[in-house]
Structure formats: structure tokens, C-alpha cells
């Protein structure tokens, strides 16, 4: 992330030449690069042609005023993310409120004050850079849909009951592999392996909640509900195995270690939410369904089948996904036996 001290690229929009010059010059003195526009239409043209970190927008302008410009930006998915600071006179404060409601980030009243200008611009720029960084990070772990939800609705540390599917994935005999190989080989292996698995999960609408050692926990159907979360989870699992086969082929060609995985999926009611602190939080799911998924995953080794699912997951699958009933199993810590099914794979 760029440091807050590093200058940004701003667009100053004002029909009044003195205001434009003053604002542009003051911001340039603070180390920023400035382009200017005389009305909203010109601003939109520039916003579409160049990437800006911030727009300072006057309200009262000919051709296209500040509201119309703001509205056009909010409707345009490529311009929506550009933060906007309204610049207005003190008697336009009602208009400013309307602009903030429409999504403007902040406002400055004219005549401008040097200290306030610096503070608000720096704060907006910092927030923008943090959002850019978060967006980049989120997109590694979750679908763009979930990333947007997190970015727009924010991260509230609180849970809710959801209907979803949970998937656990582990590399078989990973402890033995890590003990017999150089640490750098292991890290390289994981760094090649994880992106392949994440891609399969995220492309099926899943969210990677945790990675712990070689293990991955992912959720489907939450935080954004999807009716077909069970099918999506299983299809993701099948794709993960496909990817793994390609991965192992490449590993073999390079004379490197090959791996096997076990995947366990359970579906049902669970509590989903963000846990942690505001500085370090993670999306997680807890509850009996989650425990069952973890137990089922551990059972893959014994069962000799790479993808195992519970009955609830099986009941949500379309006819083209074939499963074999392995029977009820009583897992450690569970009173009731669990019906386990193995998903048929071409391998």
C-alpha cells in the first residue's frame, strides 16, 4: 500500500476559476497531482479516461451540477469507488447532507481552511488506499460479490443463523511429507497448492474462511445466501480433485512430491459471522454442522474415498452427481450416528 504521505491523483471540479486554481494549487503544495474540470460532464469524461484517487466536487455548476455528477458516478460501476469530497459554501449545508446520503465521503466548506483541507483529503486518501488493499486481499479469498458486501456494508462483528455448506480439506499424510522434505519445498508446495484450491472454491461461490497448516475451511451459501450451496460445494470439491490431478502431474514431471487430499462437506444450520477484533477479524462458521464436516473429512482416509458428504448435502444434489452410501458412522464426540456418502469421481 502506498503510504499516506505519498501523493495522490485528484480531480478538482469547480466552475469558478479562482476556486479551481486555489484548490489545485493548495493540493499541489501538499504533494498531490491535480487535474481540473469546469463542470460535471467534463469531470465524468476525465474520470472515465484516468484513474483518480479522489474527486473534489463543487455543487453549483452549469451544464451538470454536483448532484447530477454524483448520481452518474454512483450508477457507473467503474466510477462508484472513487471517493468524493463535496466543496460547497456554508449556506449549502442541506445540499451537502443530500450528497453525503448519496454516497459522498466528506465535505469541505468554502472559504476553505488549510488545516481542514489537509486533514480531510489525507483521511479520504488513506481510506481509499486501505479499501483498495482490502479489495485486492478479499478477492483472493472470496467471490467479488462477498468482497463488495464487506466493503459496502462493512465488517460487523456479529453472527446470525444461516443455512449453508461447510467444507474441510486436508492434505493426506502431510505431517510425514513435511518431516521428510526440506522446509522450503513444503512452503513452495503449499504456495502452489493453495491458489488452485482457492480458485476452485471461489469460482463456485465459496468463501475461504481459514487456512491452518495444510488445511482449508470454506463455506458455501454464506455470507451471501445461495439456494444451491450444497451442489456448489460438491462441484467445487470435484474441481479441486481435477486441479490436484494436474498439479500432481506437474509435480511428477519436476520430480517433486505428489499429494492426496481428503474433502469433507456437511450442510445445514450454523452460526456464521465475523469473529475477532476490528483489527484482525475472520469470517467463520460454528455449530454442529461444522463439527460434522470436520469429522467426515477425517474419515476420508479410513474410507479410502476423497470426497465425503453428509445426508443433508446429498439431499441437495442434482441427479448428475452420483454418490455411494457408506452407511452410518458414529464419530468421536457425537451421540448420533452420521450417514456418510462418498461422491463418485472419475478417478
Amino acid at each position: 500500500m502506498k503510504s499516506p504521505q505519498e501523493g495522490g491523483h485528484f480531480l478538482v471540479v469547480d466552475d469558478n476559476k479562482v476556486n479551481r486554481m486555489l484548490l489545485a494549487h493548495s493540493l499541489e503544495q501538499l504533494g498531490h497531482t491535480i487535474d481540473t474540470a469546469e463542470n460535471g460532464q467534463e469531470a465524468l469524461d476525465k474520470l472515465r479516461a484516468t484513474e483518480y484517487d479522489l474527486m473534489l466536487l463543487d455543487i453549483e455548476m452549469p451544464v451538470m451540477n454536483g448532484y447530477q455528477t454524483l448520481e452518474a458516478c454512483r450508477k457507473d460501476i467503474t466510477l462508484r469507488e472513487v471517493p468524493v469530497i463535496m466543496t460547497s459554501s456554508l449556506d449549502e449545508i442541506d445540499s451537502v447532507v443530500k450528497c453525503i446520503e448519496m454516497g459522498a465521503e466528506d465535505y469541505l466548506t468554502k472559504p476553505l481552511n488549510a488545516t481542514l483541507l489537509r486533514a480531510r483529503v489525507t483521511a479520504s486518501l488513506e481510506k481509499k488506499r486501505l479499501r483498495d488493499q482490502q479489495r485486492k486481499l478479499f478477492r483472493t479469498f472470496v467471490t467479488a460479490e462477498v468482497a463488495e458486501e464487506l466493503l459496502t456494508k462493512g465488517l460487523s462483528l456479529g453472527g446470525k443463523h444461516v443455512e449453508a455448506s461447510v467444507m474441510f480439506t486436508d492434505i493426506r499424510s502431510f505431517t510425514a511429507i513435511s518431516e521428510t522434505h526440506d522446509p522450503s519445498v513444503i512452503i513452495e508446495l503449499l504456495n502452489d497448492y493453495f491458489p488452485l484450491m482457492f480458485e476452485a472454491i471461489v469460482s463456485h461461490g465459496g468463501t475461504v474462511n481459514h487456512i491452518e497448516g495444510d488445511g482449508i475451511m470454506a463455506a458455501f451459501g454464506t455470507p451471501v445466501f445461495r439456494e444451491n450451496h450444497r451442489e456448489q460445494a460438491v462441484r467445487a470439491a470435484v474441481q479441486m480433485l481435477d486441479r490436484l490431478q494436474d498439479f500432481n502431474q506437474r509435480q511428477a514431471e519436476l520430480n517433486r512430491v505428489q499429494i492426496k487430499v481428503g474433502i469433507g462437506i456437511a450442510s445445514g444450520r450454523m452460526i456464521a459471522g465475523y469473529t475477532g477484533t476490528e483489527h484482525r477479524a475472520t469470517f467463520t462458521c460454528v455449530g454442529d454442522t461444522v463439527n460434522i464436516a470436520a469429522r467426515i473429512e477425517q474419515h476420508t482416509k479410513e474410507a479410502g474415498r476423497p470426497i465425503l458428504i453428509d445426508r443433508n448435502t446429498r439431499n441437495g444434489l442434482p441427479a448428475d452427481i452420483l454418490v455411494d452410501a457408506l452407511g452410518p458412522f458414529t464419530f468421536k464426540g457425537k451421540q448420533q450416528p452420521i450417514e456418510v456418502y462418498a461422491v463418485q469421481t472419475s478417478k
Binding site: 476559476k17 479562482v18 486554481m21 486555489l22 494549487h25 493548495s26 503544495q29 472559504p111 476553505l112 481552511n113 488549510a114 483541507l117
Partner: peptide, 18 residues
Amino acid sequence: NLKALAGSDFISELIDTF
């Protein structure tokens, strides 16, 4: 306040424009 914002050097240019 304007001087603090614009800098003393720039203020003349601003007045001229006005």
C-alpha cells in the same frame, strides 16, 4: 486564512485572476 491556503507567492496570481 487564504494566504495560509494558497501560500504568499500564489496570492498575487489569485488576486489577478479574480
